[in-house]
Nucleic acid binder design. Structure first.
Lengths: 207, 207, 207, 207
DNA sequence: GATGAATGAGGGTTCATTCAT
DNA sequence: TATGAATGAACCCTCATTCAT
């Protein structure tokens, strides 16, 4: 059986030059993942692009996987920031307004670094099956479910678990696909129309 | 631009020993894709698992990509068979009945070879971004759109293009996720409930 | 059209350990070319003989062809050094003395690494037909032609182009064949006799 | 040490269908050698081009080398036919006329199948160092030397061995190079001029 | 710490040759 | 005899990782 590569960073290196090196490595990894895809991404290339030696790379990350994990973590954190923010903003709003803001935010989130998002979404699954979508999903589920919980009186009785699954999965799929598969092919008006439709989809489902 | 590897099979070899070898190779490729992922899938491993030599592999397939393409084609054909069948069956039914059958069929389709489906869905974009999901998507879109067209009088006026996108994307995402991410964790009753919810989602959206 | 392999070295590596590795690789390539011929020369064998890993080989040379090109260049440079030197030495001498020195020099040149010379002369046309012998030929032609130009008054009127072709080709063939095909079979006296004959051949031709 | 491949044909197969198959194989080999070079020439391709199966190929030739040897033999035989004929024709002629005819014949000989000639001349040497030029050379030497012997009274006293070497080597080199290196670049008049020069070179050398 | 030369297992692919049919 | 599917050693090349400097 293959030894599973370490995915924990080697040092925390939170200050000064170290931190800069670590950042440069993560950024370089992200850019190369986007440009070349997961399997063409090599540690030598990453080090070169980051302007450090391979040796240094291995001083901060014990393996290629650790580097990729760091990219995933950074990207996930950015996405979750958007999700957390919008769900906080929306907490007190009625369902229809809330959903519209959520959909819009989801599109913004997918636009943070769409190419990277695609690579991470598509090419990681071997490392911890669940781990990928999940870090993101689990928290998103919890937050969205909390919203539904708080606004249960605004709509029909539903199995909250199931409703959360239906809503989160649909919104994610629609916005992901709109941004990534139709990037550039959908005009801004078309995007607005999509927001309308997605909102209607979710709102009427809940009512 | 990188020279794209050939993806056409080398011989047609439709009878006897040849055919058996070809089938064994395609099946071995599918199993290894599932077990190891695209990047770790090597021609030597495929040949070994298929019980033939690498030489034989290359007599029938000009490249690793051709082999994967064959797997994609076989799997797509199986899925499309389900899709075509159900959409034909459903052509004359009213929206609510039609959608329920569609959702049910989508779940069946995802259960054909769920692990393989995941790998193909996630790791193929390498080989012709559009070509993969699209062979499937394009036809599915067309068929579903034709259904909507024919039943336009049963629901509100919509942009058919957009409605097709919303419906197909949502159904695909919900059933894909239900089968793959929650495989084993969702009881049969939960699945039935999911069918109800997904149906409601789509039907009410269209009304 | 087949993609031509790169033939430029990968690093310049002019000092220390790197330089030693590069030299060892070039020398190993030369020896294996001689022993096994072009087709049987494999990068693994070269690396082994040079006492380094294949990986190292590819750190300095992007392809087998680049390695061979380096051997060609090194050998050509050695030969051209002889050719340039003798033609400079001879510039002011009358035809008969000049030709004798040229022939003698040509024999010396062919003795630098006769077996390698044979392989390079015979098996290179693969890599840029013209580029090989020609680097050598073109300059040799030019230098010899310049000599003839400067001494035109010493002999009959001739088409300089043609005369250069006749002289250079004949001297090359005679000395090449003497050294390579009759190596060991021609005594030193026989070699001296050959110099006399070759000189006579060319001198009387020009008169 | 590598086992040296057999080079003798397996059967003499001198009649009927067998003979036709053998001929087709030799011809196919020659054409592929020309088109692809020695190392890209594969037995499978040869068999295909000859319109027989690999199995059949191996019924007539025990190895790839045997096939190539047969091509060499056939080509050499054609060249030697020209050489024998012209030297017989020329036996009674005085030196100047004889040499002119020889040179002309040598050019014709090189034009029989120039591309094949180049491949054979350049890419064989690993199999029996001497064997190549030699089959041809040895007989040519003997025949030319016999001519010189018979006409010794027409020129100065020379070491016949040496004179043969000088003449045969020069004529071969000049005509080979003219036909192969300057093919297409030398006009017919230029060729005539070359014949004049080559003749003068040899004749004055002997006088 | 940082460097980058070195490693070598492993990947995709070809092809001379064999042998069951 | 003829066929052509099958074999597998060998080829060129890449890349994650180590370690002497």
């Amino acid at each position: 059986m293959a030894r599973k590569p370490l995915t924990k960073p080697r040092k925390h290196a939170s200050q000064g030059r170290s931190r800069a090196t670590v950042d440069a490595l993560i950024e370089a990894t992200a850019r190369i993942l986007v440009k070349d895809g997961f399997d063409k991404t090599s540690t030598n290339r990453i080090a070169e692009k980051a302007g450090v030696s391979v040796g240094s790379l291995y001083q901060y990350f014990p393996s290629k996987e650790a580097l990729v994990a760091a990219v995933v973590e950074r990207h996930t954190e950015e996405l979750m920031h958007v999700v957390r923010t919008v769900l906080a903003d929306v907490a007190k709003l009625p369902v229809d307004e809330a959903v519209r803001k959520l959909v819009t935010a989801a599109i913004h989130a997918h636009r943070i670094d769409p190419e990277l998002h695609r690579v991470l979404a598509e090419q990681m699954p071997r490392t911890g099956r669940a781990a990928n979508a999940d870090v993101l999903s689990v928290e998103t589920y919890a937050l969205f479910r909390a919203y539904l919980d708080a606004h249960a009186d605004e709509f029909r009785a539903v199995d909250l678990e199931l409703a959360t699954f239906v809503c989160v999965t649909s919104i994610e799929a629609l916005t992901h696909s709109a941004v990534l598969d139709y990037a550039g092919r959908l005009s801004e008006e078309a995007m607005d129309a999509l927001v309308d439709e997605a909102t209607r989809l979710i709102v009427r489902y809940l009512q």
